[in-house]
Design a protein around this nucleic acid. Structure first.
Lengths: 232, 232
DNA sequence: CCTGTAGTTTGATAATCATCAAATCTTATA
DNA sequence: TATAAGATTTGATGATTATCAAACTACAGG
């Protein structure tokens, strides 16, 4: 593992303040691998042998059932994924594939569980991270059940605008096909939802988004911290 | 607090093996309250002052947005709820109301966090419980995104049949209105979904369910551990 | 037991969303 | 740059789900 990778991993909140020898235990057994785009890293239903950390690139978490497939989340550096499965020693609930060329760190699950049992600081960090993940999924679920697809898109755009610095102008970072799946709709439906937002001050051409009237958009989107604020 | 309540709480997995003095700290500050039916115990967006434990009765977790409301979960004895908010010291993401006359134990959140920081056994139990909650919500999300309402109902019935002892005959434990909301549909839609399941060997009259042909039902429901098995 | 209230069902209709097919646009690469 | 593959958009249509109104049912309180 390169020193830069090492340092970046150590800077993750999950590993803050933990005992050095325990961190070394984790790192000693760690792999780092480079994957091309569109490689399936893990498959839903399999045993969780590794805790994954996206060091560079981008990974999509998705789920399948009965020939259908849906995007559950996009993981960008530096973040872990499938922490819950690792800790519980339970099968993966989601599959993961690279969306671009990616560098992924693999920490053997049994090492993670061993350190988790020994290192209280680490155990607390795991709780914080898990609680965060839990609340994120609950918010997503609320969005799915309480909002129409246009409302979900509107709120997504508002959120992306905030990430991009609230300039009212930014580029979509994911393919529309994937965005549609993430938002729980078909690509065709997304395409029409985008059109339906034009009267609310939204212009989208290609991946470029311009929000000309945020008030108008918010009157439709009605964003609320308890669904839309990631830190809430 | 009554001795029986005390003992029942101590038997919860969340409090297993923890230091007695720490458990006492939790109990010392605890309230126990009796609520009539239809009382709102907590409200989405408020600060999380207490970890709640349902000792008897039944509590519904629900969420609201823009005049709409949806049922998120039903909590039965002996279970805690809003653990994530308590640990993170974050606002509630869901509201809670009693569905019947209920006895609820309230543990002050700051005590829970204090003990969580001191007692490693307890901290680990919290992780296990949180991971469980997380995976449950992910499964629900998958069901919402990958299945139609009829498929969700079919799988719900299969699951309830398992809980009831796989006799092929049981009673619904919740109002249909609530069940519909939990499954992400309207009461009218549930009523029609029930009819649509008749050709698949399901008879429902009032709250009584008879599954006459499980193979037929499963051919529609296509249950899978990674959505439908709570322990998976 | 009666009566009112709330839950459930049914019918009619409308909104939302998905599917399929074809046209258009984008992008990677030969 | 030309080409092919894939992504996006558009149109037509159908399935799914929601809404509204009314009828029916079950049940709790007087």
């Amino acid at each position: 593992m390169k020193d830069t990778d090492f340092q970046e991993i150590k800077d993750l909140p999950l590993f803050h303040n933990m005992d050095n020898s325990n961190f070394d235990t984790l790192i000693r057994g760690a792999y780092i691998q480079n994957f091309p785009t569109q490689v399936e890293l893990i498959t839903e239903g399999e045993a969780s042998n590794f805790l994954h950390i996206v060091a560079s690139g981008c990974v999509e978490l998705f789920a399948s059932w009965n020939e259908r497939e849906t995007s559950m989340a996009t993981v960008r550096p530096m973040s872990t994924f499938i922490l819950a499965a690792t800790i519980k020693d339970a099968p993966y609930l989601m599959s993961a594939r690279t969306m671009e060329k990616s560098r992924v760190v693999l920490l053997p699950s049994q090492d993670v569980r061993k350190v988790f049992d020994k290192d209280n600081i680490f155990a607390r960090s795991v709780v914080t991270e898990l609680a965060q993940c839990y609340r994120t999924v609950v918010k997503n679920s609320k969005g799915l059940k309480l909002r129409t697809s246009i409302e979900r898109l509107a709120n997504y755009l508002i959120k992306q605008n905030i990430y991009a610095g609230e300039t009212g102008e930014f580029d979509l970072k994911t393919e529309k096909r994937l965005l549609a799946s993430y938002l729980g709709m078909t690509p065709e439906n997304l395409s029409r939802a985008i059109k339906a937002l034009q009267p609310y001050g939204v212009k989208i051409s290609g991946a470029h988004v311009i929000i000309t009237d945020m008030n108008d958009l918010e009157s439709l989107a009605k964003p609320t911290p308890s669904i839309d604020d990631p830190d809430h």
